[in-house]
Structure formats: structure tokens, C-alpha cells
């Protein structure tokens, strides 16, 4: 067999390498984004907190929280809540957590440029995670997107120590892709994110419900119920809040409401059964339990509904 010339071998190898690299990266979104459809927007009223060394997390978070009406949020007050001394940075989940502690509903948007700009257009500055280094040698950075200029194809940000930073759309997407397209918005009270999707938004509210911020969660479920009247999760959540606060007949009302929207959801009937147990209506409770069990006979919890509820009914009748 003839030996291939060295140069050709090298050429083939490098072609293969380029091919491999080309395959591994996902296509960039900005090429498919019709910049003509985007409007010229800059949220100039967005405050600016120049970051101290390594502290872009608290600074960026304070920026979006201020816009959401949390007036006492500053990088100094947020630093103990989000800064990790040994990592010299802040984690995404802690930014979300701190926004929850500030009594807001933080929402992670879909990883789409179109959604990001839609939020900015709606007046919500967007906190983004960027990688300003390389994939192998990352430099993680949080900044706040406040605008877009379609004529110059530029993204406008509050970033680090620069009050008004502009990046070409391509460069911005490159850095944002490095951050896995992660971005969050914090709407003011009484508002929904412009790009909110039902299940993602319900997860965001449920986090607050789980942490016992019932008043905020209740208001948000009501808001969601107006926006998406055909989603059962809003009345279901309202029922669960009422139940946890001991208002069982109100809980019953909301569970019924949820069941009118989604008659196939066992969770609704399971909880309805409990609301009836608490009101000493054992027979009705058992009926609801039977429906829950019928809807999901294989499920670990709902499959045992009748047994669970009849035990509870027996206990309450004994204690009375």
C-alpha cells in the first residue's frame, strides 16, 4: 500500500477536525431572527450599579429588582444572599432564590433571542448569564439586557462597570450561548412576563407557594387564571393555598373549578377528597377518592386513594 504524503494526511485530519467542530455546535439563532421585526427599544430608566470586583451577580440582580419595584434592593443588601466567597461569583439558582425572598416571581425565559427581545420590548430588563471566555476556560458574567438597535444590529446592556455597553447581536448571542441561553426576568407585582408559558410560570409560582409566601402566590395564580382560563393549575393552586390555610370549603370550591377544566387529572380529585374529609363529609370524600384512583390506578399515591382516604375518614369519625 502506498503511503500517503504527510501534507495530504494533515490536510485530511484538519478537515475532519473542522467538520467535527462544526457539527458539535448548534446553529446560531441570530441568523434566523428577522431584525426588521424587532423594534428599536432602550429601557433608559433602568438603574445602573457598577459592579465591585467579581460582584456582577448582586449588581445585575439589584438592577432588575429595582425595576420590579423592590426599592431597597442594592448590591450591598443582596451580596450576603447571592455571593459565594470561595467561588468569587454567584449561582443562577441563588439569584432566583434572592428574587423570591424579595417577594417577586422570578421567571426563567425560554432560551430564545426572540423571547429575550420580546421581554425587553414589554419593559422587562432581562438578566442574562454570559460566558465571556471560552467553553474550556469560561469567564461567567451576569449582565442586564436593556435594549436593541435594529439599524446597527446591536444589543444594549448594563454590564459590569459599563453603564451602556453595546454588543453586536452575533457577539452577544455567542456569549449568551456560552451561558446556555440562561436568562431571567422579574416582573413587577401584578404583571406576568411577556413570554410566560403556562407550565413554566406555574412552576415559578408553586416555588413561592412551597416556601409559604401564600399571599404572593395567591395573587399570581389569580393573574394566571385570567391569562389562561383553560389551565387547571391556577384554580388547583388556589385550592391548595386555601387548604393549607384551613379554608376547606373554599379549597373544595377551587378543586371543583379545576375539575371542570381538567376532569382527567387525578391530583384534583385526590385533593378534593381531602378537602371533603376535613369537612367531615366522608361519603363524598370516598367518591372523589374513587375517581382519583380510577384515573391513575398505577400511580403510587393516587392508585391508593381509596385506602388513604377511607383511613382518614375512619380516623376523623373516631376522633369525633
Amino acid at each position: 500500500m502506498t503511503k500517503w504524503p504527510d501534507a495530504l494526511q494533515k490536510l485530511l485530519l484538519s478537515c475532519l477536525l473542522i467538520f467535527l467542530i462544526g457539527c458539535s455546535s448548534t446553529p446560531m439563532q441570530y441568523r434566523y431572527l428577522d431584525s426588521q421585526t424587532l423594534s428599536d427599544v432602550e429601557l433608559t430608566n433602568t438603574p445602573f450599579y457598577p459592579q465591585d470586583e467579581f460582584q456582577c451577580g448582586p449588581a445585575a440582580l439589584a438592577t432588575v429588582l429595582n425595576v420590579a419595584g423592590v426599592d431597597d434592593a442594592t448590591p450591598e443588601t443582596l451580596k450576603p444572599q447571592v455571593y459565594l466567597p470561595e467561588r468569587e461569583g454567584s449561582l443562577q439558582s441563588e439569584l432566583l432564590g434572592a428574587a423570591r425572598r424579595a417577594e417577586r416571581i422570578p421567571y426563567v425565559i425560554r432560551p430564545q433571542l426572540a423571547d429575550l427581545f420580546k421581554e425587553v420590548e414589554a419593559g422587562n430588563p432581562v438578566l442574562v448569564l454570559q460566558n465571556l471566555g471560552f467553553a474550556r476556560w469560561p469567564i461567567w458574567h451576569y449582565a442586564v439586557v436593556i435594549g436593541y438597535n435594529p439599524r446597527r444590529n446591536e444589543v444594549i446592556l448594563r454590564s459590569g462597570t459599563t453603564e451602556r455597553e453595546t454588543m453586536s447581536l452575533r457577539a452577544f448571542e455567542h456569549s449568551w450561548r456560552g451561558g446556555n441561553y440562561w436568562a431571567m426576568v422579574v416582573p413587577a407585582l401584578g404583571e406576568l412576563p411577556a413570554t410566560a408559558e403556562p407550565i413554566r410560570y406555574f412552576a415559578a409560582i408553586a416555588a413561592q407557594e412551597q416556601q409559604g409566601r401564600f399571599e404572593l402566590a395567591e395573587a399570581s395564580y389569580r393573574l394566571a387564571m385570567e391569562r389562561w382560563p383553560s389551565e387547571y393549575m391556577a384554580p388547583f393552586g388556589l385550592g391548595n393555598i386555601a387548604f393549607q390555610q384551613g379554608r376547606f370549603s373554599e379549597a373544595e370550591f377551587y378543586y371543583y373549578k379545576a375539575s371542570e377544566i381538567a376532569a382527567e387529572e387525578p391530583a384534583i380529585f385526590f385533593n378534593l377528597a381531602w378537602a371533603l374529609v376535613r369537612q367531615n363529609r366522608g361519603e363524598e370524600a370516598l367518591l372523589a377518592a374513587e375517581i382519583a384512583q380510577m384515573l391513575a390506578p398505577e400511580h403510587a399515591r393516587y392508585g391508593a386513594s381509596v385506602e388513604i382516604i377511607s383511613n382518614a375518614v375512619n380516623q376523623t369519625t373516631r376522633s369525633h
Partner: peptide
């Protein structure tokens, strides 16, 4: 202040997560 999912993510190790600085 974290959700169950966020906690679960971090159990993999905080040094594995991006920390914006």
C-alpha cells in the same frame, strides 16, 4: 429560597455550576 429542582442540580457539586463573576 430554592426549588427542589434547583437544590437537586446543586447536589451535583457547586464547583460544577457556572458562577457569574
Amino acid at each position: 429560597a430554592m426549588t427542589d429542582e434547583e437544590v437537586m442540580e446543586l447536589t451535583a457539586g457547586i464547583d460544577q455550576m457556572p458562577a457569574g463573576a
